[in-house]
């Protein structure tokens, strides 16, 4: 019972953390039809920035500052690496995203001098509490709450504000919405800002479970979150969240068995099965290619 409770709890919190990253993937894909390979690395940079911030200012100032820095990073990446390729073939933009990911990893290796960085203990979040007879961190307990609050806020933003309406319009039809007078670049920037902010929050919650970060720490969580986004139907925010929880829970169940090596393999096998059986995912809309 205790074992099941602890596995479920870590699965749900892991799922929540993946959900925060997956939203960034799914929103960008919905609007630009781009797999933003650099998103996992933005997530990693957010963790690194927090490490450097905590060294000089207290945690309650450094967390918001780290989130703002991540937002800036996401904004700059979009303006510098994706904006010049707006009319280029989709593959060029994807290659550019891969290039950005390569750049961010090398840059962080340079800044950290290749040393693994120790993630700070954040008061409260890193403290342990007894739940159902097991010890767990506050971060794991409050993750689902934070995720739900943020997602409710996000859906309100998408459904009931002007910019949200513009986002929906752009994701339906890029060209037409431009003709209707929507400022595409502004909408895309806002998408990247939201995605990066959520990734930054996710990184605080995710990395609290780990003692060190290295420049490649973001790659795998990023890919898993991407699988979650595909699973739920890429382009759909609720889909990404559901997918992320499924993937998170499955992962922590597999990690509890003797097949722990295969947790990532399982995730990717799930991806291939979903892509082959139902490429639009659980909640995705059917995209028809015009000739």
């Amino acid at each position: 019972m205790e074992f099941i409770a602890s596995i479920l709890m870590s699965g749900i919190s892991l799922g929540g953390q993946y959900a925060l990253i997956a939203i960034g993937y799914t929103m960008v894909y919905g609007i630009l039809r781009l797999i933003n390979f650099a998103h996992g690395d933005v997530f990693m940079v957010a963790g690194m920035v927090l490490i450097y911030m905590v060294a000089s200012v207290p945690w309650y100032i450094s967390i918001p500052l780290a989130i703002i820095a991540t937002i800036l990073l996401g904004f700059v990446i979009e303006r510098a690496a994706y904006l010049p390729l707006r009319s280029a073939p989709r593959m060029s933009v994807m290659i550019s995203a891969i290039g950005v990911s390569y750049l961010l990893q090398n840059l962080m290796t340079y800044i950290t001098a290749g040393q693994p960085m120790y993630y700070p203990d954040i008061p409260f979040l890193s403290d342990t509490v007894p739940v159902f007879g097991t010890e767990t961190q506050w971060a794991k307990l409050i993750t689902p709450v934070i995720v739900i609050v943020l997602i409710v806020a996000l859906t309100q933003l998408i459904n009931h504000t002007k910019i949200g309406m513009a986002m929906r319009a752009v994701s339906k039809d890029f060209e037409t919405s431009r003709l209707m007078g929507i400022k595409i670049n502004k909408v895309i920037s806002v998408t990247f800002i939201i995605g990066s902010a959520l990734a930054a929050v996710g990184s605080v919650l995710y990395f609290t479970n780990f003692s060190v970060i290295v420049p490649t720490s973001g790659a795998l969580p990023g890919l898993r979150a991407f699988v979650a986004a595909v699973f739920g139907g890429i382009g759909s925010v609720p889909g990404a969240v559901v997918g992320a929880f499924v993937i998170g829970i499955c992962e922590s169940i597999i990690r509890g068995t003797s097949f722990a090596t295969f947790s990532d393999a399982f995730t990717f096998a799930l991806l291939i099965i979903i892509l082959v059986v139902k490429p639009t995912g659980l909640f995705g809309e059917k995209i028809t290619d015009k000739v």
């Binding site: 039809r33 797999i35 989709r90 593959m91 994807m94 890919l223 991407f226 699988v227 595909v230 090596t261 295969f262 990532d264 393999a265 995730t267 990717f268 096998a269 991806l271 291939i272 892509l275 082959v276 490429p279 290619d289």
Partner: peptide, 22 residues
């Protein structure tokens, strides 16, 4: 996998490589 198009194919083959590595 080859029935998939462009970026879906890319991500599926990437997944395949990770499975082989695991």
């Amino acid at each position: 996998v080859l029935r998939l198009k462009s970026d879906y194919l890319a991500i599926a083959t990437l997944g395949f490589a990770e499975i082989v590595r695991a």
